[in-house]
Amino acid sequence: MDSTLFVHAVEGSLRLSIKLILIIVPLMVAYEFLENSKIFKKTLDFLYIFIKPLGFSKQASISMLTGIFLGIAYGSGILISQSEQNKLSKLDVVLTAVFLSMCHAVIEDTLVFVAIGGNGFYILGTRIIIAGIMTYAFYRYFKYKTKDNPV
């Protein structure tokens, strides 16, 4: 193998890594401050208005919102403990899994693609809208099913 090819590849990978660190570290610091601010809690309350029509209970929405912003590992951690304590209905669990499987850790995911030149508005907007539509479809489907055949 040509050694200049390898050097070129290593150089490119290091350059990309440094660029991403320089963008991501300040963004994560800013996000940490935002997450602990009063505005963030108010935003969560505000977002619940949009989640409610999709069929979630208030209890489920806590793990939902955690998962959306922080990632499936945190969100599902709460989700698993809540489902084990039987705090959530079967419907809640299914809907949360459907939504979160497509839409989680959106801040970090979007930021890394914005860092390499993507358009964050399209990435985030399309993702949330599609996950919302899919969840609503499942909600209607399960509601219809459980009417004839209560769980």
Binding site: M102, C103, V106, D109, T110, F113, I116, G117, G118, N119, Y122, I123, T126, R127, I130, A131
Partner: peptide
């Protein structure tokens, strides 16, 4: 970049 970001973001 945006399309790959969206597609791999979902999946």
């Amino acid at each position: 970049v945006t399309i790959v970001g969206l597609m791999s973001g979902i999946s």
